[in-house]
């Protein structure tokens, strides 16, 4: 069975995306290998170092997804994305526009604007956003290759706090929905995949685990389990019993 994640015309077998911001660089390799990640995000501002270059720690065959963290508006996101391309990070870009240092919540309006400009510039934009249907539609129209709603505030490990709204995006948006930020446990990743998310992105949950390798494996299995369940079609869960004497039983054929 071929079940690929397709982003901007590129095919991926894995539905796990690894964030690298909170890792010891030496552990990225282990996390990629054991989580089966084919895409790793990294902040241009971290790449932008004279030495200790994070790029050297990205295993061969892995697709880089540079992000625009540090951008406070659309214009800055576009500048950072261009710098990332010049630094050899490829065409993919995860748009992060954050104007709030406390909760690090993304600014949907500026993100949509950046998305439009970057799509015109030939990037494959993946906007990180607060799960709002109208904003997601704007981003689709602006040329996004996927929508990346947050499950909970970044780094919070709170799980699917925005579950109902992510569910609406999954129903209404035709692009892949990649759940990003807030996923703290494999069970939460599994739940998001069961809902129909196309992929999961996680960083803190694995980076701060007691055993990074084992947690990376656990995420891989959870995501595969959730995806398989979604494809199989989960059974109906009713909150009331089915009536044994239907109200409409009197109708003649």
């Amino acid at each position: 069975m071929s079940d690929k994640l397709i982003l901007g015309g590129h095919e991926f077998s894995s539905r796990f995306i690894l964030g690298s911001g909170k890792f010891d660089l030496g552990l990225i390799h282990a996390a990629v290998e054991h989580a089966g990640a084919e895409i790793v995000t990294l902040a241009l501002r971290r790449v932008n170092s004279f030495h200790g270059n994070i790029l050297e720690h990205i295993p061969a065959g892995v697709t880089l997804l540079p992000n625009t963290s540090g951008a406070r508006n659309a214009e800055e996101a576009v500048k950072i994305a261009r710098l990332a391309r010049e630094a050899g990070c490829g065409e993919f870009v995860k748009i992060e526009v954050i104007h709030d240092s406390k909760y690090l919540l993304p600014d949907n309006y500026e993100t949509a604007k950046a998305c439009e400009q970057l799509a015109k510039d030939g990037f494959i934009p993946l906007p990180y956003m607060y799960p709002d249907l109208n904003a997601a539609r704007d981003m689709v129209n602006a040329g996004a290759a996927a929508i990346m709603p947050l499950a909970a505030p970044i780094g919070s490990n709170q799980g699917l706090a925005t579950r109902q709204f992510i569910r609406i995006l999954i129903e209404e948006i035709d692009l892949p929905i990649i759940v990003d930020a807030g996923i703290g446990k494999p069970s939460q990743a599994c739940e998001a995949m069961e809902l129909g998310a196309a992929a999961i992105m996680a960083n803190t949950a694995i980076a701060t685990a007691g055993n990074i390798v084992e947690m990376a494996k656990a995420f891989r299995h959870a995501i595969i389990a959730g995806r398989t369940a979604f494809l199989a079609g989960t059974g109906r869960v009713l909150d009331h019993g089915a009536a044994s004497s239907p109200l409409t039983g009197f109708i003649q054929a």
Partner: peptide, 13 residues
């Protein structure tokens, strides 16, 4: 200390 030294986490724009 098991921590990661970071020389830069910033981009001037």
């Amino acid at each position: 200390r098991g921590l990661q030294p970071v020389l830069n986490d910033y981009v001037y724009i």
